[in-house]
Structure formats: C-alpha cells, structure tokens
Nucleic acid binder design. Sequence first.
DNA 1: CTGTAGTTTCCTGGTT
DNA 2: TAACCAGGAAACTACA
Length: 236
Amino acid sequence: MLESVTQSMCLSNTMVCDPLMSWTELSGTTKDDYATYSYSFWTSIHPEYWSKHNVCEWLQFCCDQYKLDANCISFSRFNINGLQLCNMTQEEFLEAAGIYGEYLYFILQNIRMHGISFFTDAEETKLSNKDCNCLLPIQDLQNSHLWEFVRDLLLSPEKNGGILEWEDRGQGIFRVVKSEALAKMWGQKKKNDRMTYEKLSRALRYYYKTGILERVDRRLVYKFGKNAHGWQENKI
DNA sequence: CTGTAGTTTCCTGGTT
DNA sequence: TAACCAGGAAACTACA
C-alpha cells in the first residue's frame, strides 16, 4: 500500500510530498493542540469547509480515537483541503489512505451525512486485519448506545446467537427472541450484572420519543425509526 | 460547577 | 400466573 506518491492521481495539487512526512510536519500542529479537539469539533464544520490543516488534524484525531497506527497512513497524500477531500472518489480515497482506507472513508461519509455517528459493523465495513498487523477496535467504536448495540447485534449473525432476528429486514422490523440473553449481553457491555429485560425495554421505549425506534404493536417486536441509521442493506 | 443526554432503577397499572 | 408493555419519576453517569 505504499505505492509511489508521484502517481498522477496524487491529490496534492500543489506540492510533491515526502510520503513519510508526519502529520505534525504537515499541519504544524502539536499533539497538545490537537488534543483539544473533540467529536463536536468535527461535526460543527462540514467536511467540505475543512482547511488543509483540519483534514490533517481529522486524520490524526481518527488515529488517536480509534487506535489506528498513524504510520500506516501516508499523511502526505492528504495535504488537501476539505473540498478536495470530499470530492475524492472512493477509489481515490482508498488509494490514498492505504489499509485504513475503507474505514476512514466510511467515517468521513458518516460525518458528511449524519454528523458524528459511526457504523460499527465489521461486515458492513468489510475490514479485516489481515493486511496489517495493526488491530482495529471495530467492536468498540462509538456503539455505546443501546440502539446501536442492538443494531450491531442484528447485523452480526456470528455475535447474535439467535438473540435477535429480523422480522422484516427492509422495513427495519426485528424481534427480540431471547430477551433475557439480550439483557445479559447488554449488561455485560455496560458492566452491570443487574440489567434485566424489563429495564432494557424501558430504555428502548424512550427511543419512541426520539424517532430511533417506532412502536410495533406486537410483543418483543421493534422497528427502527427515521432517526436510526446504519441498519439498512446496501446503504450507508 | 452546571446542564444535558442517555440510560438505569423503580413503580403502578394494563395486556397477552 | 408469568412475561410483556406503557410511561412517569427520579437517580445516575459521562461528557461538554
């Protein structure tokens, strides 16, 4: 993945960069400056309006936040502003971002479309560690919310164990098959061994208010609402 | 330190 | 009767 940066498709239109140039050299930002950034910063400005500086900082932010090995990314390929970044085709992006290409592209598209809400399903992102010895903390991304946990379980049959199943995949309708097991699993994630389906379902019912879930008039059946995302097939 | 979001816990009452 | 569902109320926790 360290193809020559002198290829014509290199998106830096102003300079030929040293592929090993670090993000600090490019952005002129120190780690301390960078540390002050948070999720809200990256969503407060649409990616199209990011400066070159911001693009570099965003990459470093992702590395830091998701424990990606910055050495696997050629920062010099991203010496571009936000508009150029957004105008990259997926192919160009993958080419430039190397092994984390799909992952970062995925995150960027999400910021563009939904602000800072990431999809975390390994199947959807089609990420694997086989190309690199860097470990991707896919499972532990921003899926700390209950509905995301449920969504990801639905999208990962291997983790699911028959706890949840789709009733109508296209409409986002699903059924809780093993309520007790679901509660136990959620409790495990939240390090709370007192979790029960009674309490979990109360939390699910709060989602009706926010449009994350819609009410379905059947026992143990729920439906993703207009404000839930990432559950649809072939759609980011 | 203050406010808010997202639960968690508990509860009363109704339904399957 | 057990398991669920509907929400109100209040406590709790992480984060901005």
